[in-house]
């Protein structure tokens, strides 16, 4: 059995250097559509029409993207004559659209932040991407981010999924059981705006309908590095790229 030890050692360090250095390995992020200026008004209209969730809004020759609504169907990339511009980064964390001024944790949390993950009706993708943060390639422990088993010791509530009706109670219970210094981060398009599930008798259409959300990580699902960026933002170790989301796609 000792060979596991040597096997592990021989593989060397495989973790990403992010956030010290940017991570550019192909495939770490699927990218996302960004605001695009088309040459004609019609092209912009087509782009807005093809989007099944109205995440793209045309305004003259320009289109504006609301990343919270994007479900990553790739229609605007592959099914258009002139596709939308595509961004390949992953630093997508933003503040929620409701205008609440959320501050990151004070400096004492920077090196040790405990995270409670709640699956509130998630499709499995966002949860799986959060799980990937534990594997050696991302290894969030090296940054002082720990998963906790109980909300009593948790600082951050990380919610994935659009909040199904059966999970509304448990989610609220978890939030209530946390220390009042808690912050809430909604991860994924479903947790932000309900995604493809929308608002129904079984779906609350996003976490903000149930809890006050402090930070949002858009994406469907957001890749592990995007979630890691979110955690760094909450811990006050990274700044937000765009302090406010573009509401309804308009600047």
């Amino acid at each position: 059995m000792s060979f596991w030890f040597w096997h592990g050692l021989r593989k060397g360090i495989q973790s990403t250097r992010y956030p010290a250095r940017a991570e550019n390995t192909p495939g770490v992020s699927p990218g996302r559509p960004v605001n695009t200026d088309f040459s004609t008004v019609e092209e912009a209209q087509l782009a807005a029409e093809i989007c099944p969730t109205d995440a793209i809004v045309a305004h003259g020759k320009s289109t504006y993207v609301n990343p919270g609504k994007c479900v990553h169907c790739q229609l605007c990339l592959h099914s258009l004559q002139s596709p939308m511009n595509w961004e390949t980064g992953y630093e997508w964390t933003r503040l929620p659209a409701d205008g609440k001024e959320a501050l990151p944790f004070p400096a004492s949390f920077a090196k040790s932040m405990h995270i409670m993950v709640v699956d509130a009706g998630d499709c499995g993708a966002c949860l799986h991407e959060v799980k990937q943060l534990n594997n050696p390639l991302y290894n969030m422990h090296r940054l002082g981010f720990f998963l906790t088993a109980t909300p009593r010791t948790a600082d951050l509530l990380l919610v994935v999924g659009p909040v199904s009706e059966n999970m509304r109670g448990p989610l609220l219970k978890t939030w209530e059981a946390m220390p009042t210094t808690r912050k809430v981060m909604a991860v994924g398009g479903c947790a932000i705006a309900g995604g493809v599930f929308g608002k129904s008798f079984m779906c609350a259409c996003g976490v903000s309908a149930v809890l006050p959300v402090d930070f949002e990580v858009p994406g469907n699902p957001p890749p592990p590095l995007a979630i890691l960026h979110g955690l760094l933002v909450v811990a006050g170790r990274k700044s937000l790229n765009s302090p406010r989301p573009i509401s309804e796609g308009r600047p």
């Binding site: 495939g27 770490v28 699927p30 990218g31 990553h72 990339l77 469907n220 890749p223």
Partner: peptide, 17 residues
């Protein structure tokens, strides 16, 4: 494999194909 899927299809979970 997730990364290879992403490089191949632009999505790590093969959405939108």
């Amino acid at each position: 494999l997730l990364r290879a899927s992403c490089v191949f299809t632009d999505h790590r979970y093969l959405f939108g194909l």
